[in-house]
Amino acid sequence: MKRNLKFWTRFTWETAGVDLAIAALISLFAVFGAEGVNLKLFVTVAPYFLCIATIFGMMMINSGAHSIYVPLLLSMGETRRNVFLGFRYYQALLITVATAACAIIWLAVPGEVSSVGLRSLPTLICILMITASYGSIVGTIFVKWKWAGTVMIILLCGGLGGLVGFLGMAASMETLFSTALSMVSHLKELPHWMILTAFVSVGLDLLFQWLILRRQEVRL
């Protein structure tokens, strides 16, 4: 288990690095889109970019991890149980790290946006749990049925691309910040269906991956 933790911890940091890079890229777009930058406002909004980046990252990396790393680790003599647990550990660690980073920024730079942000954290965690599970399920499907996985990945990319396009348009219409802020202010409420969806997603992911992983054949 020690080796397993070592691998997945490193994997989490690598993923976090990718997420940070995506966040930086989105920030860059936002800064170019906006007229005049308010530094304090920018800093307090940045955690949202980080969350968006984490969503992106998890979708891409979770599905990639299933088709590359899961068979690879099995080929190196890890048990299915440990691969399964290691993957859960990575998901949990990444979500914890991302939301903790958001919380730290918001606590460090208090303000209107920050207080909304802090209250949105439970919702953000739920959203991240849902996307992490979705990415993982897509990855599992991709390993077992390549064509279905490909369709789901295309839908995913389309959806996320649309979101980015929408944000980009919003930025050019008004300022990105005010549009985005009006959107995120809804996040501070945590509807019951959101919690339910989060747990159902995680449950589905666990069930699905275990069913597939249990009898998976290693092909590199």
Binding site: S75, G77, E78, T79, V218, L220
Partner: peptide, 13 residues
């Protein structure tokens, strides 16, 4: 699924 046995095997594919 036995880590102790698996640790003594290596299949370099």
């Amino acid at each position: 699924e036995n880590r102790r046995s698996l640790a003594r095997l290596c299949f370099s594919r």
